[in-house]
């Protein structure tokens, strides 16, 4: 992994992977490995966390703040389609080839995260298939939920 994650390094009480709800009751090896690959970052309001089209080298555990996921079109250059906050995880593009971000993510408030190195963590999952499966089963409901939300949003339910 060549570049460091965006954002400023943090100087406060360190964040800990095992205290993030996403890792709750996951196998300790996964937590340990994620902690080894974690970089703590903080973002001021308005700062970009990820950019559409950039290589997806990280995924993010959000501990504080709020993050807007934005997509762009010619008519709407910055359309926020979702916000995520403390306790949530940002990004799965690091898991799915060709590993590019498909949206922008921007801090809506001062935000603190742990950025986990995706490629190395993929290697951990591949080396421990049973634990890797456990990890994917933790992520899959989140992806399924977001898909369902998108489907409901497509219905434009408030349009009457």
């Amino acid at each position: 992994m060549s570049a460091l994650p965006r954002g400023a390094p943090a100087h406060e009480v360190p964040l800990r992977v095992e205290e993030h709800p996403f890792f709750e009751r996951l196998d300790p090896l996964l937590t340990r490995e994620a902690a080894r690959l974690a970089w703590e970052r903080q973002f001021d309001t308005g700062a970009m966390i990820v950019r559409d089209g950039d290589p997806a080298e990280w995924f993010y555990l959000i501990f504080q703040g709020k993050v807007a996921l934005e997509i762009a079109s010619a008519e709407k250059p910055h359309l926020t389609i979702q916000t995520v906050g403390p306790g949530e995880v940002l990004g799965w593009s690091w898991l799915v080839a060709p590993h590019f971000w498909r949206f922008d993510a921007r801090a809506l408030k001062p935000t603190r995260v742990l950025a986990i190195e995706g490629a190395k963590f993929r290697a951990v999952l591949a080396a421990h298939p049973e634990k890797g499966y456990q990890f994917l089963m933790r992520l899959l409901p989140i992806i399924a939920q977001r898909l369902e939300n998108t489907q409901i949003q497509l219905l434009d339910i408030h349009g009457l």
Binding site: K66, E70, H78, T80, T83, Q153
Partner: peptide, 13 residues
């Protein structure tokens, strides 16, 4: 359900 950058609140269902 969706917002531009002037909105600092939550977006989602």
């Amino acid at each position: 359900d969706a917002a531009d950058r002037s909105w600092y609140g939550d977006v989602g269902l």
